[in-house]
Design a protein around this nucleic acid. Structure first.
Lengths: 247, 247
DNA sequence: CGCGAAATTGACTATATTCAAAGCTAGTGG
DNA sequence: CCACTAGCTTTGAATATAGTCAATTTCGCG
C-alpha cells in the first residue's frame, strides 16, 4: 500500500487537466495561481484554438466576450491612426495573457504574428474566477505591471534612439524572448524573426527600407547573421547591447 | 431626537479623516475603495508632504519603502539611457497613485514637475491593505490598466507622428487633464504648462528647439496663444485635434 | 522553372537636429 | 525704480538622419 502522501501527490498531478500539463501558462502564466481542482473546473470552460499567421484576433475597439492565454507563437498589438499609419505597441509571446479585463473594448488590435495557438475562455468566466480567487487577480496585476514597464522601456527606444540602436534593441528583445543558444557556440543566440520588415518598421517607428539598411549594416559589422531573410544569429549579445545604446 | 438613518450618515461622514475629505484620491483614486472606518485606520499611517518643483521623489532603480497619492500638482516619470539621453514616459496628475507594488525597485525616476503635494504611506502598510481588501487591489489593477493604455497610446505619438502632430497631441493631453474653460469663451481651454521646453522635448522625443518652432507655428496658425512662455490658451480643441493627427 | 511577395539597394528629398546667436522673463540688488 | 543677471526661449543657418520613390534581387512555393 502506498503512503497517503504519495497517493495525494499522484491524484493531484492526475487532476491537472491533460491539456494544461504541457502549457506554459500553467507554470508561469496566470493559471499558476490556480490549484489543480480549480484548474480542472476552469479547463471545462476553455478551448484550444489555432490561429494562422496574419489573422486578426481582435480589432481595435471591438467589444469582446473572450480572453485567452497564448500557448504557442507570438501576437502583435497594434494601434492605428485615422490616416492609416500604424504602430505596434507590444509583442506578446507564450505564456502571456491576452485581453483587457473590466472594459468592454480592447484598446488595440491583436493579430497573430506567427501561427499561434491560444487557450480561449469566456470573459464572464474569467471575471468569476477573479472574484473567487484573489490570487488570480494578483497574478493579473503583476503581469499588467510587467507590461506597463515593458511599454515604458520601449517608449525610450521610440523617442530617443537612432535607427541603428532601434534595430539592435529589437533583435535583443527577440533574443531575450525566443532566442536559443546556437548549436556551435553557446554564447550565440538564434531565432526566427516573427515579423516581416514592414512590421518591424511599425514596431520601431521607422520605414521598412530603413530597417533593411540597418540590418545590412549590422550584418556587415559582424554583429549578426541573417539567412533566408528570417533566420537570425546574434554573435554574442554584448556587441549588440553596445550598439543598442543600452537599457 | 434624530432618526437613526440621519445619525448614521453623519457619523459616517464625520468618520472620514479631515485630511481626506478634500482629497481627490478619496473620491476618484485608490482610496475610494476604502470605507470610512478603513480610511480612518489608513489615515493614521499616512502623512502629507510638500515637494518643490524639480525635486526628485524617487530615482530610477532606487529601492523604495513608500508609496504615495498625488494630492495636488503634476509629476513626471522619466527613464535615462546610459549616455544621458532622457525620455519622459509618463505624466501623472492628482489624484493618481505613485509607486510600483510588489517590486523592490521603481523602474523610473519620479520628479515633481510642478510644486506637488503628496499623501505618503509605507510600502508595508499598502501591501497589508491589499491583502485585506480585494477591492483595493482591484482598484489598483484598474489604474494600472489605464496607465498601460495611456503608455501605448503615447507610443503611437512617439513612433508615428510628426513634430507638429506631437506638439499638438501634447497640448491636447494637458487640456484634457488640467485645462479650464477660459473666462471669455467656454469653447477655449486654458492652462499653465507644467513642463519647460526641454522637458516637453523629452516627453515628445524631440529637441527643445523643434518644440519651440512648432509652438510658434501653432501660434501663427491661430490654434493657440502663449503668454509669458507658459500660459496657454487653446482656441477650440477641434482644430488642434485635426492638427494632432487624431487618436 | 517561373511567378508573386518580400527584401535590398540606390538616388534624391524632407524633416528634424545641431550649433550658434539673440531675445525674453523673472528675480536681485543698487 | 531701474539696471543687471541667470535661465529659458526663440530664431537662424547649415547639417545629418531617416523618408520617399523607384529599380533590382532574393526567397518561397506551386
Amino acid at each position: 500500500m502506498q503512503s497517503t502522501d504519495r497517493v495525494a501527490f499522484e491524484i493531484d498531478e492526475a487532476d491537472v487537466p491533460a491539456g494544461c500539463q504541457a502549457c506554459g501558462a500553467r507554470r508561469f502564466g496566470i493559471c499558476s495561481a490556480l490549484k489543480a481542482a480549480e484548474l480542472t473546473h476552469f479547463s471545462t470552460v476553455t478551448r484550444r484554438r489555432k490561429i494562422a499567421q496574419g489573422e486578426t484576433i481582435y480589432f481595435e475597439d471591438d467589444e469582446v466576450a473572450n480572453y485567452a492565454n497564448i500557448v504557442a507563437g507570438a501576437v502583435k498589438l497594434t494601434k492605428l491612426l485615422s490616416d492609416g499609419r500604424q504602430q505596434i505597441v507590444g509583442l506578446q509571446f507564450a505564456p502571456e495573457f491576452i485581453g483587457k479585463p473590466f472594459t468592454e473594448k480592447v484598446p488595440v488590435s491583436i493579430e497573430a504574428a506567427t501561427d499561434v495557438e491560444v487557450c480561449v475562455f469566456p470573459k464572464t468566466e474569467l471575471e468569476k474566477m477573479l472574484r473567487q480567487q484573489p490570487d488570480f487577480e494578483h497574478r493579473l496585476l503583476e503581469q499588467t505591471l510587467v507590461q506597463l514597464d515593458d511599454a515604458r522601456t520601449w517608449m525610450v527606444t521610440l523617442g530617443r534612439k537612432t535607427a541603428q540602436e532601434k534595430v539592435a534593441s529589437f533583435l535583443l528583445l527577440l533574443a531575450d524572448h525566443i532566442g536559443k543558444p546556437s548549436a556551435d557556440n553557446p554564447a550565440h543566440s538564434e531565432f526566427m524573426l516573427p515579423l516581416k520588415r514592414a512590421d518591424i518598421a511599425d514596431f520601431l517607428g521607422l520605414t521598412l527600407e530603413t530597417v533593411s539598411r540597418q540590418m545590412t549594416k549590422l550584418r556587415k559589422m559582424g554583429a549578426i547573421d541573417i539567412r533566408k531573410n528570417l533566420e537570425v544569429t546574434v554573435h554574442g549579445t554584448e556587441q549588440l547591447v553596445a550598439i543598442s545604446g543600452g537599457e
